[in-house]
Structures are given as structure tokens and as C-alpha cells.
Amino acid sequence: MEQAHTTHNVGFLGQKENNVIAGLLIGVERPARDEEKSKKVVTNISLERIKLNNLLVELASKRDKEVFSELFSYFAPRLKSMLMGTGTDPETAEEVAQEAMISVWRKCEMYDSKKASASTWIFTIARNLRIDRFRREKRPEFDPNDPSLVPAAEPMADDQLALNDRKAVVETALNELPDEQREVVKLSFVAGLSHQEIADQLSLPLGTVKSRLRLSFEKLRTSLRSQI
């Protein structure tokens, strides 16, 4: 079993805070949708994102290797990059990125474009592979088909916002976080470090890590709710 976190390479932090696929984002008014309430969300809609979501749906319906290579050429280099950010050597990062993309092929029929964007769904696949590979423990997972599942009494307000708007909200919220909070979020999501590992790495009390994570979540949720 390999140890992913021995080197604690954090060179990626703070370098590219606003390097947000800038060329791909265009500021447009969201097209009106008939069932939409009168809320007006002027936002950046990424055409690239919509295209990626559609490609993933197409992959499931057609099982086309050309479609696969399009998705591969966008995601595999980003997955590799993300994994290298955790201190994983380039060869291993490449292997895991390939493995993740092969999982995408295997699981793509389970992708629901109404529930998550392609990048979010692929993030969860890569996250699980990373844990399998680098941690000795399992990650117990919520099961949406649990026979004991308690359904929402009414649709959750937070789930009402269209996917692309949610992504824009997340993007804005993340960019507006104070550096110290964003740093902790990145160490958690990109490097997969636990509270304690983050505390050790940044020489912070555990309680500070905890409160920074909480504050960043609150920012995220407040931004979302202000759009609903």
C-alpha cells in the first residue's frame, strides 16, 4: 500500500486561485425556462460544462470510444494534476487518472445529468479511487437505494436551483472565501487531508481547522440560498 501523504507537497496552494478556466466562461444571461420562477440569475454559464455533461450522457447511450476520448482529453489531465497536488508521483497519478476514466466508462449509465455535473460526478469517482488506493480504511458510503431511506417531505429548497447556476454559485463562493479558508478547503478536497493532518501541516489548532471548514460551508450555503 502506498502512502500518499508522506511528502505533503503543497506547492499548488495559492498559485492559481483565479485561474478559473477563464477562456471557457462567457458571461451571458441565463435563457428563460418556462417552469422557472421569476428569480433572475445573471451568471456565467459555461458552455464547456454543458457540453461535458452531454458527452457523458452520450457515452452511456452510445458506448462510443470517440466520445470516451473527448471526455478523456478533458478530464484525465486534470485528474492527473489534482492527484499530483497530493504529492503523488506523476506515474502513479497518471495510472489513477486512467483508472478513473475507465471507471467512468463502466459506470456512466448510473450518471444522472439532472443531479450532478460531469465534473462533480467524476470528482466523486476519483475521490473513491484515491481512498481505495492510498488509505488503509474503507469509506462507508451513503446508498441512495437504501430500503430505510427517509425521503424529503417536500423537495429541498437547496436542490431547486438549476445545475449550472449551482456551479456558478459554488465558483463565486469559493473565490470569495478568505485565503485562509480556501486553503483549508483545498487541503481537504484536493489533497484529501483529515482535520488533524491539516492542523499539523499548517501548525494550527484543530479547532481552527474545524471552524474554517464550517465557515466555508456556511458561505457556500448562504450564497446558494440567496439565489433561490
Partner: peptide, 22 residues
């Protein structure tokens, strides 16, 4: 619902990474 929202954050951070060629 909260976890789904936070997963969007994970997806966004993935998009944000500079591609490293394979």
C-alpha cells in the same frame, strides 16, 4: 442535499486544475 452541494465544490476544484498532459 448539503453533501450534494459540497460535491459541486469538488467538481469545480477538479475543473480548476491546470491540465498535466498524460
Amino acid at each position: 442535499s448539503s453533501v450534494a452541494l459540497v460535491e459541486e465544490l469538488g467538481g469545480f476544484l477538479l475543473e480548476e486544475h491546470d491540465p498535466v498532459p498524460l
